[in-house]
Design a protein around this nucleic acid. Structure first.
Length: 437
DNA sequence: TTTTGAGTTGTTCGA
DNA sequence: GTCGAACAACTCAAA
């Protein structure tokens, strides 16, 4: 039996410019790619989850791309903690390669896999693939992490060289793949894994829209305009290479800065994993949040009586996407107008967003609530009406998602703006004053 | 060590 | 209608 080298695809569902795959091919022969539908993750997801559908479609495309070069992608449904060691035993594998994932649960899983493989005398090595700079690569001169974006961003740009953007030429070592026609295995169907195949809309294209990037600073804040690239889902699942995208973004500083925010939040999650549950600025955890089932429902369903908020929530519920400007508005509204805990909103987004990324989601919500790294000062309370006047003055976006807006059936505002603003300023002030304890 | 300048995306108020 | 200042100081980063 041929001795195999394993490459484990996770959130890097592409062949070209794949750092870990390149390393596997360069270091070993008979490289066998594998993907696992992880039951530990899937068990929490609803039957119609569009992300599972996206992954399934993408894995099918990946398998087809492998097939064109005579390689068979092995796709399993199960627990990687059992499957990977089982494969290692079965095929006398000595090396398993993958790309690093920085979420705490992924880190724990990978550590457990590493321990199991070690017992089997098999190495397990990860590569940096999903960010340009990770961990300690962009830190202050004293070695500590940045907690303010702008100096991080400047250092990030100073550190960037052509080397960081160079594509990994996987094709060069394509001869090192395991080529074995007999090894073909079918991909488990969605139904077999307990999911339905109903698709609510077409997924965004993976093509880089250069015209959107070049005009990004002018159109990115107008939700009625197609002014954002919609590439976030592809970054999430690695169907696009971050190096390729950064290369295409060097000409537009605003857009590049957004990609740097992504590295920034990933870095923050790595250094401060407890920010998933706790405010980065711990004194903000003293805030007394309200909870009202009906108000929270109104927010979730897009029935707050503030049309920009409602349009955003309905876009999210119907498509799994929400325009970035509107994400800030709805998040601010939940935390500051309704005084609901940012964690509730973060979890709701986590359930609904196709492009859900833990680091960015937690970072964004903490930013909106005022408690995160480099967050908006708490007294900056977005006014949902002036946001609408500025960014959707003709109600174009609103009418698309809230067709009954303007008619009798559209609800009255659930809270009055001026009153809500004064309440939140008072509540935050009380929590943040040490004397109030 | 101390000092200095600066800090994603806003709003409101009053002149 | 337009403009600048206040909002609240505070902490961070770097010299």
């Amino acid at each position: 039996m041929k001795q195999l080298t394993l490459f484990w695809h996770r959130r890097d569902l592409r062949i070209s410019d794949n750092a870990g795959l390149f390393k596997a091919l360069k270091n070993g022969t008979n490289v066998q790619p594998v993907f696992i539908f992880d039951t530990q993750i899937l068990k929490h997801l609803p039957k119609g989850d569009q992300r599972v559908l996206f992954i399934h479609q993408t894995v099918s495309e990946l398998a087809a791309a492998y097939q064109q070069i005579g390689v068979s992608l092995w796709v399993f449904h199960g627990n990687p903690l059992e499957l990977i060691p089982a494969l290692v035993k079965e095929h006398q594998i000595q090396h398993v390669f993958c790309n690093r994932d920085y979420e705490p649960e992924a880190i724990a899983r990978d550590k457990a896999v590493y321990e199991k493989l070690k017992e089997l005398n098999c190495t397990f090595s990860g590569s940096k693939d999903q960010v340009i700079f990770e961990k300690e690569e962009v830190v202050k001169p004293d070695g500590n992490p940045y907690s303010v974006y702008t100096p991080y961003m400047k250092r990030w740009k100073e550190n960037l060289t052509d080397f960081h953007l160079k594509a990994y030429p996987v094709e060069k070592y394509a001869g090192n793949f395991h080529q074995d026609e007999k090894a073909k295995k079918p991909i488990p169907s969605l139904a077999a894994m307990g999911f339905s195949e109903v698709q609510t809309q077409d997924f965004p294209s993976v093509q880089i829209p250069s015209s959107i990037i070049s005009n990004y600073q002018n159109t990115r804040d107008i939700p009625a305009i197609n002014g954002t690239t919609r590439l976030s889902v592809h970054l999430r699942f690695g169907t696009i290479s971050i190096r390729e995208l950064v290369k295409a973004s060097l000409s537009n500083e605003k857009f590049l800065n957004e990609l740097i925010w992504r590295d920034f939040y990933q870095m923050i999650l790595y250094w401060y994993p407890n920010t998933i549950h706790n405010a980065f600025k711990s004194e903000y955890d003293r805030i007394e949040w309200e909870f009202d089932e009906h108000l929270f429902q109104a927010w979730c369903e897009g029935k707050t009586g503030y049309p920009l908020v409602d349009a955003g929530m309905r876009e999210l519920n119907e498509t799994g996407h929400m325009h970035n400007r509107v994400r800030m508005v709805v998040a601010s509204f939940l935390c500051k107008h309704l005084l609901h805990d940012w964690r509730l909103g973060e979890r709701y987004f986590a359930e609904k967003l196709l492009d859900f990324e833990l680091a960015s989601n937690v970072g964004g919500w903490q930013w909106a609530a005022g408690c995160g790294v480099d967050a908006a000062p708490y007294f900056r309370v977005f006014n949902p009406t002036s946001q609408q006047e500025k960014f959707d003055p003709k109600f174009e976006y609103i009418k698309k998602w809230v067709p009954e807006f303007g008619s009798d059936t559209y609800p009255e505002p659930v809270v009055e703006h001026k009153w809500a603003r004064e309440r939140i300023l008072e509540r935050y002030k009380r929590a943040l004053k040490p004397t109030s304890e």
